[in-house]
Design a protein around this nucleic acid. Structure first.
Lengths: 313, 313
DNA sequence: AACATCTATCAATAAAACTTATTGAATATC
DNA sequence: GATATTCAATAAGTTTTATTGATAGATGTT
């Protein structure tokens, strides 16, 4: 049994196709067929059920794949140990970011980071929290930035900052004249929300539900981006909540519509999250350093209360 | 990097000698030299400091060895998964047993076990608890039978039975006329003990100390075996405590000297212990089954209090 | 029936792992 | 101080293994 064979098994298990898996492994299809057969012969058991189309794992195969993923990941860790020893910070690093954090945070730290760590090849993807968790667990992401706490056993979190919620209240709104808003003023019924799948939406719902226990779970208007949310609000369709960093680059006219909360302001906790195996920990720590550095200048709020990003049913 | 290379590194790290390690790996010494060099070249780091005699691990080397042991063990686990699937219970299995359990328990289950699981090649070694813990952790033992709880994070325990302590009181002793003994009757000063290194000795000391806090830690007479302990006691040199199973095969005359404790009788907890990685779990469970089976008929005590086998300073 | 898709098999080749024999350095012995 | 002894590294040659391109066979599609 070799680590190479195990990684071939992982590739076929993932793509459910020898030919595609072979491409991903940068070998030809016969190589995969033969090496996997050899492993199956040695273990004297079938890992794949080749009668099914597309190809499927056998019951033992599933267990073997789980264990193989373990072994292959642990083997990467050896290079990691060496890198750490040498103080080398580089190589490919895949970072996921949720949509409501991406446009505001990324421009703030990306330049700093690539200048400070030029050997790291950052590959950034915008993904929902759900997708991020799946891809951290299957090893397709090295780390991600998301709202926390996630209460997920396989994933570790390092808090980067707390980002307060800011209300955006249009001209005609009933709360127009409240200079400082209280959480209890909120009503889910006149709140514009992001569409399903965004954890910021869940945060807002949790916040509103905390004070009014609403039975009606049907929301009037939903949007895919915070930009659109502001425009809809300007049209008089309701108020909305924005993450603080988004309020920094809206136009001057709209800024007049921002209403801050009385302290402790509701806020989301934004963290760098990664698999508990702590692979590529040096790069994760480098990211944390850079992001914490740029954020210190941008968010000054002291007194906040954290709103959970997880939908509670 | 291959699993083979990693196991070569482990062998050299263990034997601190390429030639001996090569023999253990069933290859020639140049093979080890070359493969390890190749790994060092690929990682671009030295794992061994060859200037030292005998050869030593570098600092990174130590970390790599820890990780390598992980990977190699996890790779064994794949064969384990397959065995489990096939219901195959066999292969070499190394079991450690502490000296005060070995002579009484082993004859009770060994025959049953080898008949029921003829494909398992049991290799049994008599070792102290301390040695057992070290050898379970370094993979030289698959499991062991010892007094518990050990309070060791890397080792898991499955309780097999509780073995009461029975007092052996010679003719001339002050406790001679107490039919049933109480723990508070015990005095460490007239107690014959096993020599240092036996956990049964620690158990007895813990038991005595629990009721008399003695400052004097010098014991009068010590012995290497329970047989000798009984003989010394017969010579009038003091009383002693025996594990219950040992009382089953002492001669008739001596049996008159046995005094049981009032319930709850002090007892040691005897467990099957193994590494938390749970390698060869099928065989461990098979052992547990067989031993529990034979013990059920031998020990009927209900009400016991467990004495810790660990020296508390 | 012809075509497309996908895996297994075969023979050839490139790469690697391993072996025996030998060297060289360090240490111990006379 | 010369001579063994020990032990890892190196060299050269052999065997084994991994990989490839070409192709056959199986299965499903138009």
């Amino acid at each position: 049994m070799t680590i190479t064979q195990l990684s071939y098994v992982l590739a076929v298990a993932e793509h459910q196709n020898f030919t595609k898996a072979a491409q991903k492994c940068f070998v030809t299809q016969p190589t995969l067929s033969m090496q996997i057969q050899k492993l199956e012969d040695q273990l004297d058991i079938l890992i794949f059920d080749r009668s099914k189309k597309p190809i499927e794992l056998t019951e033992v195969g599933k267990k073997i794949v789980t264990q193989a993923r373990n072994i292959v990941n642990e083997s990467y860790r050896i290079q990691d140990i060496v890198d750490q020893e040498k103080g080398f910070i580089g190589g490919e690093f895949k970072l996921g970011i949720i949509p409501t954090i991406m446009p505001t945070l990324l421009p703030m730290f990306l330049n700093n980071f690539v200048k400070k760590y030029p050997k790291v090849k950052l590959k950034i993807e915008e993904l929902t929290t759900e997708e991020i968790i799946a891809r951290i667990n299957d090893g397709h992401l090295d780390a991600a930035i998301a709202a926390t706490p996630l209460e997920n056993e396989t994933i570790k979190e390092r808090v980067l900052y707390f980002e307060p919620f800011v209300a955006y209240v249009p001209n005609n709104h009933r709360l127009r004249d409240n200079k400082k808003l209280n959480i209890t003023d909120l009503d889910i019924d006149d709140m514009l929300l992001l569409e399903d799948g965004h954890c910021f939406r869940e945060g807002v719902i949790n916040l509103c539900k905390a004070f009014k226990n609403h039975t009606d779970d049907k929301f009037q208007l939903e949007s895919g981006s915070i930009e659109t949310l502001i425009k809809l609000s300007n049209e008089g369709l309701g108020m909305t909540l924005l993450p603080y960093l988004h309020t920094l680059d809206i136009n001057e006219k709209s800024k007049a519509n921002l209403h801050y909360f009385t302290e402790p302001s509701p806020a989301r906790e934004v963290s760098l999250i990664y698999h508990k195996s702590e692979l590529k920990m040096q790069i994760i720590e480098a990211l944390q350093d850079v992001i914490s550095g740029v954020i210190r200048g941008a968010i000054a709020f002291q007194n906040v209360q954290i709103v959970s990003p997880i939908s509670k049913k």
